[in-house]
Amino acid sequence: MNIRIINNSNHPLPSYETLLSAGMDLRASISEPITLKPLERAIVKTGLHIELPGGYEAQIRARSGLAAKKGIGLVNAPGTIDADYRGEIGVILVNLSQDEFVVENGERIAQMVIAKHERIEWEEVSELGTTERGSGGFGSTGTE
């Protein structure tokens, strides 16, 4: 499948790092470094604009290496880019560590996964079918 993209950054297009990768790395496209203090967040621009077909979304996810080694995550993980959005892709990074983190131009800051999704229509009813679990949630199924 081909997806239309405008690349206003001076970095290569997102690409899969390995044959079986699900996500493509997104890079920061910034004119100067951004320093994130502990618990601080910022929208980091990528310079990319995409045109997805209907029925698809782009999911923006944290990079596991940044999360594990530096404590850098995404506030709204996963973020969703809808098929009708044409603005620049921005990534909402958050620093969950106790140390400052500096985002440099060209740094790989997130992953983007293109995913198919369904649209539904609601059928309003007065009761739902029963299941063994019922309304139990938040750990109600145990830890076995």
Score class of each variant (00 low, 15 high):
E104G: 10
S21M: 02
I6C: 04
I6A: 04
P33T: 01
Q98K: 10
I30T: 07
E144V: 14
M1R: 11
E104C: 06
L20M: 07
A42G: 06
P33E: 03
V102F: 12
G47L: 06
E32M: 05
S29D: 05
N7A: 02
T143E: 14
P12S: 05
E40H: 12
I81A: 06
H49K: 11
V103S: 08
V75F: 02
R108M: 11
D25F: 06
S135V: 10
Q59D: 13
N105Q: 07
K37E: 09
D84K: 15
A42T: 12
S135C: 14
E100A: 10
D99M: 05
Y56G: 05
D25E: 08
P14T: 00
E100C: 10
T18C: 06
V75K: 01
I109H: 02
P38M: 01
A42H: 04
E104R: 13
L52G: 00
L26T: 01
L20E: 14
N7T: 01
L39T: 13
I92M: 05
N95E: 00
E124K: 15
K69L: 09
I81M: 07
E144K: 11
K70C: 08
A77P: 08
I120T: 15
E123T: 15
A28K: 02
I50T: 03
R27Q: 13
T130N: 14
L19K: 12
L74Y: 03
P14L: 03
I109T: 01
K45I: 07
T130R: 15
I92V: 14
R27A: 14
G65R: 04
N76R: 04
H11Y: 08
D84Y: 15
N8S: 09
F101K: 10
T18Y: 05
P12K: 00
Q98R: 05
L66C: 03
Q59R: 12
G23K: 05
E40C: 11
I109C: 05
H11R: 06
I3W: 12
T35N: 09
G137E: 01
T35D: 09
L74Q: 03
L66E: 03
H11Q: 11
R41Q: 07
Q98M: 12
I3N: 13
K70V: 01
S21D: 07
I60A: 00
R108H: 12
A110W: 02
M1F: 08
L13Y: 13
I50H: 06
N76S: 11
S97E: 01
T130C: 14
E127N: 14
R61E: 09
P53V: 08
T18V: 02
G134A: 08
D82G: 07
R41M: 08
S31T: 10
E17T: 09
E144Q: 13
I114G: 02
K69A: 04
V125D: 13
Y16E: 02
S135N: 09
V125S: 11
E17C: 10
E88W: 07
H49W: 10
G47R: 03
W122I: 15
V125H: 15
L19W: 04
R63I: 00
V91P: 03
